[in-house]
């Protein structure tokens, strides 16, 4: 039982159109395995049957399930740790100086997956901000399924094991069913919204810090560039952008400048880039 070339092309096209994620040939086994539960759920006998029906009768809800099943949602608490230490050690102290009038900080988790990133940010800010300060974390993802899960704030044993120090588990979560639920004191500072980074962005108030981590890697260079341009418009001119460990704006979008923060680096908008200038400014 193996996926035909035309079925694979159909799926790859769909995923690429809806999420800009590229599924290279050779991933047939992955497509087949990931779609099997989706096909069974829909009552189809096999993945081929399911895709056959879908090609004859397009169905936006089913398209979403296919895209969801094939996007990688891999994430963990305090992923790579250094960006979170940098917030505590460098970014928060700086913001406490520059945002003293408002006493509030706004952070965007722009590909939040199942929610570990925005709640890790919430724990970090809760601990690092002085008393009397408020913070809001806006968490978005293309996947409605991920947004639903993240906003429920419930995590399995397998998930809480990954990178969450046990003392923070005990302090900020309570047991619920077979897993754990995030405490209301954190949950109430986090908002969730379904959002496709590669489509025109909705109007959002600007942010002091943007986490755009481990999502650019899935896009081609043109898509990366346009995502970074759009994101930059939502970042305060003195704000910080954090990317994944394997990602950079360098050579993609010269509107950002890389700066060292703690033991990692972040990106800050350049003051102004003369029109037509690409490469080193």
């Amino acid at each position: 039982m193996s996926l035909s070339a035309s079925d694979f092309a159909f799926v790859a096209g769909l995923v690429r159109r809806e999420s800009a994620i590229v599924l290279a040939p050779g991933k047939e086994y992955l497509v087949e395995a990931r779609l099997l539960p989706v096909a069974r759920q829909a009552g189809a006998g096999s993945v081929a049957d399911y895709l056959g029906t879908l090609q004859r009768r397009p169905d936006p809800a089913a398209h979403r399930s296919v895209v969801d099943a094939l996007t990688t949602n891999e994430t963990s608490w305090f992923r790579d740790r250094e960006p979170f230490s940098a917030l505590t050690d460098v970014v928060v102290p700086h913001l406490v100086g520059t945002r003293a009038a408002a006493r509030s900080v706004r952070v965007w988790s722009a590909a939040c997956s199942s929610g570990q990133e925005p709640y890790s940010l919430a724990i970090t800010l809760q601990q690092a901000l002085p008393a009397g300060w408020r913070y809001q974390i806006h968490a978005t993802d293309i996947s409605t399924e991920m947004i639903k899960r993240a906003s429920a704030g419930e995590f399995s044993q397998v998930e809480v094991n990954r990178g969450l120090p046990v003392q923070l588990l005990v302090n900020h979560f309570t047991r619920s069913g077979t897993g754990w639920k995030v405490a209301p004191a954190l949950r109430e500072n986090v908002t969730f919204q379904q959002l496709n980074l590669t489509a025109p962005l909705p109007a959002l108030a600007s942010f002091d810090v943007i986490f755009l981590r481990n999502v650019l890697i899935y896009f081609d260079v043109e898509t990366k560039r346009s995502v970074l341009r759009n994101i930059c418009k939502l970042l305060r001119p003195d704000g910080w952008l954090f990317l994944g460990a394997a990602e950079t704006t360098i050579g993609v979008d010269e509107g950002f400048e890389r700066v060292a923060v703690g033991r990692t680096s972040a990106y800050r908008p350049r003051a102004t880039v003369p029109a037509g200038t690409l490469g080193k400014g």
């Binding site: 086994y29 395995a33 099997l36 399995s156 397998v158």
Partner: peptide
């Protein structure tokens, strides 16, 4: 839910043999 976790941890970490 418990089964899903056992599979994710030990029997199907790649998510390809559900």
């Amino acid at each position: 839910e418990i089964a899903e976790q056992v599979w994710a941890a030990y029997l199907d970490p790649e998510g390809v043999r559900p």
